[in-house]
Design a protein around this nucleic acid. Sequence first.
DNA 1: ACCTGAACACCGTTCAAGT
DNA 2: ACCTGAACACCGTTCAAGT
Lengths: 224, 224
Amino acid sequence: MANERLTRQTVAECALRLADSEGLEAVTIRRLAQELGVSPMAPYWHFKNKDELLLGMTDHALAPLPPIGEATDGWQRQLRGMIETVIGIMREHPSLAALLQNIDAKKAASFARATNDTLELLARAGLGLQESYWVAMQLLQGITGLIATRPEHHASVTPEQAAESRRQARLTMEALSPCEYPMVVAYARTLEEEPDPERYYAFGVDLIMGGIEAIAARYGTASP
Amino acid sequence: MANERLTRQTVAECALRLADSEGLEAVTIRRLAQELGVSPMAPYWHFKNKDELLLGMTDHALAPLPPIGEATDGWQRQLRGMIETVIGIMREHPSLAALLQNIDAKKAASFARATNDTLELLARAGLGLQESYWVAMQLLQGITGLIATRPEHHASVTPEQAAESRRQARLTMEALSPCEYPMVVAYARTLEEEPDPERYYAFGVDLIMGGIEAIAARYGTASP
DNA sequence: ACCTGAACACCGTTCAAGT
DNA sequence: ACCTGAACACCGTTCAAGT
């Protein structure tokens, strides 16, 4: 719209907004340029290729993630807080999960920072470096999976879109043979009623934290 | 090569082999046709579009997954066995993880079967239908993440390729500022020596199972 | 420094046509 | 029933050129 000069910031921001509202597959260099009211090649001055752009979008989304605070709490509480914050950011940016799966995440500075903080917490849990890294990656995958399976699926902002995608999921599963897949068909029926997102996310966090605490008790050397 | 008649089977098989050896992004309708020695439009007779092809590839890869056996063991042992089997299949088919992230998995019959079996096991663990489904999806995501982060990264078949991709990962992380990201840089150095894949996967399975057992103890109604 | 325009080598997919 | 060929509307990216 505005005919201002472009910035790395504004380009990344616009691309992220586009991804959040229409899905990551809508983010095309040409479509982005159109959205910015600029020629198709303009974005290339700010990002040398599409991968760099995706990294920029990720950094822009993850920027508000606060650094890990002082060690006043136990590592469990701090880690749980961090997980909840990331979930919050992913709920604000529905495309972030897909983004993290389509880039080499360790090349994003904001992601490296989050990883570093997580490694620090897990060291306090008594885990070794390798184990900590493996746990940190599983952690991210867990959060991503939580978002991907979420009841308010897709880049759907409006309740109507959310209800529609839930209906689609239900129809897909109900189309299956009830004698071959009885449990799946039974689950599909639970999708008829509106889900409670908060209950869903709380359960997900418990699931992720449960795995980490079990592994810390087994492989770690620190006291709880 | 051979000028035989095409089959849905052979097309899916060829596409999967291509994906496993050169990555999912190499699987293009046109490239696939070339590989089959056939005109670019030929695959369309067997799969109505690319999404259907990806589903077919997934079903082909997941076909050898055995159905859940009789309930002679406890649900924990059976579930652990299933996870290990899926990991085995994913290690044989390096593209399967990416495949599952790029399709609507519930539309793949083989995936629905695996989901159904998992739901049955989790019901025996005393979890409700919704909770079971959430756990099942987290389970898959966890396995997928395990494969994605694995030491023998990428579609690398040869040890040289594996060593090279590990080296690339190390260089990316070592390029980071050591005072800003001390833990990440420290972890990068552990990548210098050859990893032990079995130790890695065993740890991963413990991590995933730990979460499930913790949640079963907390939300379930069955005795262990 | 920042952006445009034309061009290249790719995509997925439709549709009419061949055997 | 199974496959081909031409055509369409897209991609990402390079490169020379404009201001």
